[in-house]
Design a protein around this nucleic acid. Structure first.
Length: 249
DNA sequence: CAGCCGTGGCG
DNA sequence: TCGCCAAGGCT
């Protein structure tokens, strides 16, 4: 849920989700449609499908127990480098290099003196993080949590609160006068995009099925609407039934 | 590797 | 108002 989504927005959904499905086997028994509805408006609904699929994989391949190795975690749908590393550190207390956008930004500024990290994680960056990570396992997980928090609350992308920063004296970027760097990546416009159309379709189907001949009220442009429907279908987020378009059961 | 995938709050 | 950006992952 936290992938590309602020903690404050995730928290209420996460709580009700775990109340309803407190374990992987519990989630595995739910329908995809129920998972998608419980996901609500968190965004990127493919994550809900992947989380649900991961729960079923955990049941099928790991006897219902979340695996505790990097390789096994990475086999689960929706689990990439960051998520696998985070689960190892924060759920299992292992020493793993957790490189999310917050950690990357803090290290970039403090150590390299550059405002923004590159779009993709580099080998040098990984080596640096590894060299800074405490050797003790419990200290390592605590360090990662602390740096992530520092990046999320103080060393933010826009208007960082350097006055509140505990490592301000040692920050290369701040000591260099906080030079403006290049933007990491520009995000495509959302209004009028296929993403918006997909979101509108998903929002409608979370409430109830929509008859095939009635779906055009969601978005007038037929070509774009069709593109969104085909995409959502191929992503396994919607299906066409006798009742019309619905969430997958 | 670049492009794509939601949503909402904030400056 | 509107662009920026958020505990990434996948193709």
């Amino acid at each position: 849920m936290l992938q590309q989504t602020p903690v404050d927005r995730v928290l209420p959904v996460w709580q009700s989700w775990l109340e309803r499905w407190p374990s992987a086997p519990a989630l595995a028994q739910a329908s995809q449609a129920d998972a998608l509805r419980a996901w609500g408006r968190l965004g990127y609904p493919r994550r809900a499908i992947r989380l649900h699929a991961a729960a079923r994989a955990i049941v099928a391949e790991f006897a219902g127990q979340v695996p505790d190795t990097y390789e096994e975690l990475r086999r689960l749908p929706g689990v990439g480098d960051y998520t696998a590393a985070a689960v190892l550190a924060f759920a299992f207390g292992q020493r793993s290099v957790v490189l999310d956008v917050n950690v990357r930004r803090v290290l970039r500024r403090a150590m390299d003196g550059i405002e923004h990290p590159t779009p993709a994680t580099t080998a040098a960056e990984r080596a640096l993080a590894e060299s800074l990570l405490p050797r003790r396992h419990d200290s390592a997980a605590r360090w990662s949590a602390a740096v992530m928090e520092l990046g999320a609350l103080v060393c933010t992308s826009r208007s960082p609160k350097c006055g509140d920063c505990p490592i301000a004296q040692d920050c290369t970027w701040l000591n260099a006068g906080s030079p403006t760097g290049e933007r990491p990546r520009q995000q495509a416009k959302f209004t009028g995009s296929d993403r918006q159309v997909r979101g509108l379709i998903m929002a409608a189907l979370r409430d109830s099925p929509v008859a095939v001949q009635s779906i055009d009220y969601v978005w007038p442009d037929e070509a774009q609407r069709l593109r969104a429907l085909v995409g959502l279908m191929s992503d396994g987020l919607i299906v066409e039934t006798t009742k019309g378009w619905t969430l997958p059961q």
